[in-house]
Design a binder for these strands. Structure first.
Lengths: 110, 110
DNA sequence: ATTATTAATCGTAATATTGCAATGAACAAA
DNA sequence: TTTGTTCATTGCAATATTACGATTAATAAT
């Protein structure tokens, strides 16, 4: 059905999976890496950088914006994108807590 | 098209996105959390625990197994699942490195 | 041997995601 | 005002994902 039954999970489980889904495409990973690398706003060169068509990049940016992990500020004709540091930090905490569940693990089995 | 153009990204970018996709569903997050919580093998009660149909759980387990994040060992009629600690650690390093890109960031903008 | 239990697989339906051409909106430059 | 630039949106086609009923395979219990 392609339809996730979100109501049967905890808010945290849904939140983790939504962030993960955000990283679940190499183009979005590449976009975020580039934004960090550039270390300032990126004004439009993402299309050249990544190599997908402009509408496709725009769609990926929209998803990242929807997660609030990036911001877009209009600057004349172009738009400047950058990481939303605050949100990124929050996201990182949530994801780290999940990834570090193994430190509670006492023994191996099987 | 629903078809990701993996050839245009680096191996690392593809790897990150594949792991992320693995966490990109709350049922799989719940499965992993449960495996950590139980701290030993889980022999079949995942269906009761999560609340999805047995074939659906089986399918999610298959994906996690394919990523090598969990292992399944046959034990009589049932199958015992547990975290693959080694692989989890490797995955965690890769994901952490990505999540920690913000510590290289010097300044805010926009 | 028959029956019960457990979990994988198959088949199928519904929804989601990915990608891009075409178009539109907003602004700058001429 | 016209033209060019930049990016968002729309519409559509193709593939992927999610979910589950039905079935199968393997073993255990009787």
């Amino acid at each position: 059905m392609g339809l996730t039954k979100t109501e049967m999970y905890t808010d945290l489980q849904n939140e983790i999976s939504l962030f993960a889904k955000g990283f679940g495409h190499p183009a979005r990973v590449a976009i975020l890496q580039h934004l960090f690398k550039i270390n300032t706003c990126v004004c439009g060169d993402l299309v050249n950088e990544i190599g997908l068509a402009q509408p496709t990049i725009s769609q990926h940016l929209k998803e990242l914006k929807h997660l609030n992990l990036i911001q877009g500020n209009v600057e004349g004709t172009s738009v400047c994108y950058c990481i939303n540091t605050k949100k990124w930090t929050k996201m990182k905490e949530i994801m780290s807590q999940f990834l570090n569940l193994d430190i509670l693990k006492k023994e191996d089995c099987c």
